[in-house]
Simulated assay, not measured.
Amino acid sequence: MRSVEEQVVAAHRAFYDAVETADFDLMSSLWADDPGVSCVHPAAHPLYGTEKVLRSWAVLMAQIDYIQFFLTDIEVTTFPSSDDPQTALVVCTENILSEGESIESFTGGSAVCSSVLVRDGGQWRFWSRHASPVAVVEPGDEAEA
């Protein structure tokens, strides 16, 4: 039997699998169904409610030909910190590789993401997600950062 942290990480990874494969059915299964659900895409206003959040992912996945996520710095916190937590916070860095302007080119970037997952019907589901791009610091600009 997997530990709670392993279950949370598996649900979290399934989210990225859904985006990478444009699997809307998988994406839909990963979110709690509630008007309080929220998502903040980089440089965008918050979206509230499962329907709006899932619609935004459908549109984004339809526009992406290729994307791959390499997750680093994954931190999982569950609470209450008992043997039966009902909420989890996952913070990670998304290192993103996607198709560039031509078929032979790729582009990359990073974002820091915070995701709140809740135990819903025995499954870990997303309640809230917020991604923020990481600023690229050019050589010589370190003193200003």
Rank of each mutant, 00 (worst) to 15 (best):
M1H: 06
V4D: 09
V4W: 08
E6N: 04
Q7T: 11
Q7N: 08
Q7H: 07
Q7R: 04
V8R: 00
V9T: 09
V9Q: 06
A10N: 07
A10T: 07
A11V: 01
A11G: 04
A11N: 02
R13L: 11
R13S: 11
A14M: 12
A14S: 14
Y16V: 10
Y16L: 09
D17A: 13
V19N: 04
V19W: 14
V19K: 01
A22I: 10
D23N: 05
F24L: 05
W31A: 04
W31S: 01
A32W: 13
A32C: 13
D33T: 12
D34L: 01
P35K: 00
V37I: 12
V37Y: 10
S38M: 08
C39A: 07
C39E: 03
H41K: 00
A43L: 04
H45F: 05
Y48Q: 03
E51Q: 09
E51M: 04
K52L: 08
V53A: 07
R55L: 14
R55H: 14
A58C: 02
L60E: 13
A62N: 14
A62L: 08
Q63G: 13
I64D: 05
D65S: 11
D65I: 04
F69K: 02
V76K: 01
F79T: 13
S81T: 10
D83A: 09
P85F: 15
Q86E: 15
A88Y: 13
A88D: 13
A88K: 00
L89H: 13
V90E: 05
V90M: 01
V91Y: 07
V91W: 08
E94L: 12
N95H: 14
I96T: 08
L97R: 00
G100E: 12
E101K: 01
E101R: 04
S102L: 06
S102Q: 02
I103T: 13
E104R: 10
S105M: 06
F106H: 12
F106V: 13
T107M: 04
G109C: 14
G109Y: 15
A111N: 00
V112N: 03
V116T: 11
V116H: 08
R119D: 14
Q123L: 10
W124C: 05
W124L: 03
W124S: 02
W127Q: 02
W127K: 00
W127V: 03
S132K: 02
P133W: 11
V134Y: 06
V134Q: 01
V137N: 01
G140P: 11
D141A: 12
A145Q: 11
